[in-house]
């Protein structure tokens, strides 16, 4: 059963998140372990269902994770496994990322958080645009294009996480 199945939805990158959350609350209430009575089997089923609903909502309400998940349902698991490791990223993109990461390292050495923030704004914008590309590719079922686009999204996300970690390090 997929995350979409739990909500009786067809797999899609397009989703009404507000409606999804309403439905999640309803289902979570229905399957709440406290309402399962004393029957051992019913309680276990409720616990499993609640856990599945929790996992599903986390993935589906986040547009980035949702796009990765739709791609996974189309057969490409861009996760920590070897098939994904063999997906080749375009060389010019890798050069761009290498440059950006080296520039961020230089900024970190000078401890200038404001400069890192300026960089993060640009990267976040690039990430959002690339996510839109991935969504368009997924809508027209273009798996190779979606794979490359989400690969790029993963790199941009790493960069943003790095800025967050730098910020935490400075503020702690």
């Amino acid at each position: 059963m997929t995350h979409f199945d739990l909500f009786n939805l067809a797999p899609s990158v397009d989703l009404d998140v507000a409606a999804l959350e309403t439905q999640h609350r309803k289902l979570a209430m229905e399957w709440h372990p406290d309402r399962a009575g004393s029957d051992h089997h019913a309680r276990r089923l409720a616990a499993e269902k609640s856990a599945a609903l929790n996992d599903a909502i986390k993935v589906l309400k986040d547009p980035v994770r949702r796009a990765f998940y739709v791609l996974e349902l189309k057969g490409v698991k861009l996760d920590s496994d070897q098939s994904a490791a063999r997906v080749k990223m375009p060389m010019d993109f890798l050069e761009e990322i290498m440059e950006q990461r080296e520039a961020l390292d230089a900024v970190k050495a000078t401890r200038k958080l404001d400069v890192a923030h300026v960089m993060a704004v640009k990267i976040r914008d690039a990430r959002d645009k690339t996510l839109e590309q991935a969504q368009r590719a997924l809508r027209r079922d273009d798996v190779p294009a979606a794979t490359t686009a989400l690969g790029r999204v993963r790199y941009y996300t790493r960069f943003l996480e790095e800025v967050d970690a730098f910020e935490e390090e400075l503020l702690s």
Partner: peptide
């Protein structure tokens, strides 16, 4: 050699 794995978002030169 410049390579990357989108599985992790790693880049290696």
């Amino acid at each position: 050699g410049l390579v990357g794995a989108p599985a992790c978002g790693d880049v290696m030169r």
